[in-house]
Amino acid sequence: MTAHDSMDAKARFLAAIERVPDQANGAERLCAACVLALPVRRAAIAISVYGHGLEVLSATDQVAEQVEWTQVTLGEGPGFDAVASGGPVSLTSLAQADGRWPMFVPEVAGTGIGAMYALPLQVGAIKVGVLDLYCDPGEFLEGPDFADAVAVSELLTSVLIAVGPGGRIPESLGPWWNQPLGTREVHQATGILMEQLGIDARNAYVRLQAFAFGNRQSLRDVARDVVGRRVRFDSDSGEAIVSDPTAQP
């Protein structure tokens, strides 16, 4: 497992999106691409609403949709735990639930799903939702495949933040989206932009993305300039002001 592998998973996902027929619902294409890029049978995305709740955004098929709706309606399941803990939650089979999710597990017992992996779609305090992946009974996401799934969930998070829930995904997501995230500066810059523009964390992240994308820069480089006070955003015009590029942080 290396950084190289996680990049490969993202590249596979980006390539898979282009193979999915361009349907009206962009979110359906994202789910379909998950199934093409990862060794899983089904995928579903639920979006965080009103702080604690989840709403079904899309699913690859009726089974995934049914499980997702059950989870959302009951307010209980691996997806909710993933959102609450900020880390992935896995259920290797319904029989292994061990008393967790006492309402959810019996409700979905008839669907024939095997292992379920709930991966939170979030960046710190920005909660986008959850990606639920389903394997056939007896199959599992092990080691590198699991890491790939997490890499895809990270990319999905960026895309969903950029387009907003239900937003239309461009036919092709270019290689710009295949970049490492998770540097401290990116998150610090998000906080700085919130304050400079008087907006919430999600919108601050969108502005950071848009500026980086528009200038064909990596998120990391733009964030470094924001943290180093070489770029600031003006609250009146909303425009980015690039000051002396040689200024020291």
Partner: peptide, 15 residues
């Protein structure tokens, strides 16, 4: 992820 939230908050406070 907790560490990410802390970085976001540091950005707000620093500014």
């Amino acid at each position: 992820n907790s560490r990410v939230i802390i970085e976001q908050a540091k950005g707000v406070l620093a500014e």
